[in-house]
Design a protein around this nucleic acid. Structure first.
Lengths: 204, 204, 204, 204
DNA sequence: TATGAATGAGAATTCATTCAT
DNA sequence: AATGAATGAATTCTCATTCAT
């Protein structure tokens, strides 16, 4: 019926979520119109509702789908790692730096900080699935470093948060101020100083 | 002009902004209803419009009014300081920790990260007036520490951001996850570890 | 108390009506704000309500006050007249032409055509006091002309309306299209042609 | 596109404009509520906005749609005419008289006199498309009459306005005073006297 | 008399969601 | 599965009117 047949039925939800990411990034959750999302995915307004029961559900699905895969990559990285922790930490920060610069997902921190508290269930899920797991991963790295005599003892949960904080700040910076910044802010020097200071600060 | 000043008149804007802070904190900017804000200030819907021309203007006024005074306190603190920088940094972090725990302004970081990009002018103002000034303050402290031989040389602008990042993260944490956290998260240990690691990491 | 004392208390209502005429002329009845009217009269919003109980009442008072005096001038003119009717008609048209060009009251026809039907009582008053009286005046002139053999017999009420119609159209034209007309429309030639054609058309 | 065309879709704008004409006629532009218009067209409030972006746009569409067709009828009439102009003028006046008595469009003159000056663009369009064309049509008739020796020379543009003025006045009369008139005013005698006087007045 | 802060009814407009096709 | 016309709840903002001073 349609002149341009859908490539695969299965792709629709993903297409819609991709469109949703873009529209949420531009307008924020509240101001994003379902019709905009649909249109950007090349679909009609009603079509979204075949896959997601509400706008909230789209947001939830977006958050769920966008983050877990990346987390799993990080976990795989850590699992495969042998030897001193510092290089692994550097590698991880490099990955995150790249994401901040290149991935469309940079907007997610801003989006989630702005909206997540309105989605209690999603917040719980996200905290358990992403944050606790992600922080746990880094805390484990720190603990391993302490065991290996690479780091002095310190509250590993706190350290995990401190490792992540500048990464988040850089992501936020890019999406909150980038549109108005005269020079596009470069997060790289900050993150490099971060690793330097952090590793010195954690050293015995 | 009138010999008996109308009691409310002068206080009204501040009352309204306080109410706005609360309502924005609870619902976010988009979901906050002007009527709610007015009601919480003990006023009628229309009254808000005597003082602010739009909801956006309320948000702007809130941001402008809430932050500059605090920044000035920090500047005064720094100006009055003599001797090594580390204690000043500790004192500053202590102040910020207190604010995160006790002040109703904790919600501002979340609110602003979520909304500021929709207010280009306010974003510019905020960046110039608060961020650049605030980061400048810290960068100056770092530079002074370097001059005094207290710190090793490092990109002071980057350091300033690294000093602030965990503070913001803690503020965000409290307002994004606090409502659902089983145990109310305590930012103190993180910020203490932060200062420890930071000072060690900055040391020559 | 007031540094600039009111010249005469009695002048206030008239000042307010004059201001109302201007504001109604610019914005129309519905879009005219009581505050604008007050401000233009150099008074505060509440002051209007000391003299007029409502916006409708202002409109009514304006209409009542603006027209009757002019009508009385016309009646006096007619009463004083002797001899053939044609010169009187020419004089009357000259007066009306002047009003259309110079008086701020030109806007009244437009205003009243647009609003009067919403003021049943005022409409009745206006019809009885102004229209019937004004048309009666002209009809009487026509009748006198017929009696004097100056005009052929014709329905005098109809003639009265025909005499007035182009005057109204010119007033309307100036206030509806004038703001957008490239050349400010000059009603004079039309009204002169009107008298010419009319007098020939009425001749025996 | 759909094989079974949605019954409403195509008809909706016309239905809405018809409803708008009625509601504007009853309440005037400012007091007409979009909901009333929608309801009278058997639609919900929101439906109007699928077809017209604003209340202003409804008014504009109404004016544009209502008048041009009638003007074209008049032009066709004139184009088809041969011989002396007077009978054509009588026929035209007869048509207008009928419209004033029977058509729901009688309210348009009142509506437009009352509102058009607030719609600069529409005013320009209307002046160019309807007035200049309509007056041009009549002026051309007059000019032809002069050429044919039927009329004495006279400013044809002025004549055109004089021809139309009583028609407008009658339309206005019916919609401004009709609701309160004891006897429903009959425009016929006035328009008949108008043609009589006019043709005599124009004769050589 | 005069003021202008306060009120709250009212209306335009938006948009998530539904559902007939 | 897909569409998009239709709905109507919800929200911002306006402004006539009131009334304490």
């Amino acid at each position: 019926m349609s002149p341009v047949p859908r490539r695969r039925k299965d792709a629709r939800p993903a297409e819609l979520l991709e469109a949703a990411l873009e529209v949420f990034a531009e307008k924020g959750f509240a101001a994003a119109r379902m019709e905009d999302i649909a249109a950007r995915a090349g679909a009609a307004k009603g079509t979204i509702y075949l896959y997601f029961p509400s706008k909230e559900a789209v947001f939830e699905a977006l958050v769920r789908s966008a983050i877990v895969p990346n987390l799993e990559r990080a976990e795989a990285l850590a699992a495969a790692h042998q030897g001193p922790v510092a290089p692994l930490l550097r590698e991880l920060m490099g990955l995150l730096e790249t994401m901040i610069r290149d991935s469309r997902l940079v907007v997610l921190p801003r989006l989630m900080i702005g909206e997540l508290y309105k989605f209690p269930e999603l917040a719980r899920f996200y905290r358990a699935t992403v944050i606790d797991r992600g922080l746990g991963l880094i805390a484990a790295m720190h603990r391993k470093g302490v065991e290996q005599g690479e780091f002095r003892p310190e509250d590993s949960d706190a350290v995990a948060r401190l490792v992540i904080a500048p990464v988040l700040l850089m992501a936020i910076w890019r999406t909150v101020f980038a549109p108005y910044g005269d020079e596009p802010f470069d997060p790289a020097p900050v993150l490099r100083a971060h690793v330097e200071i952090l590793l010195r600060g954690l050293a015995p």
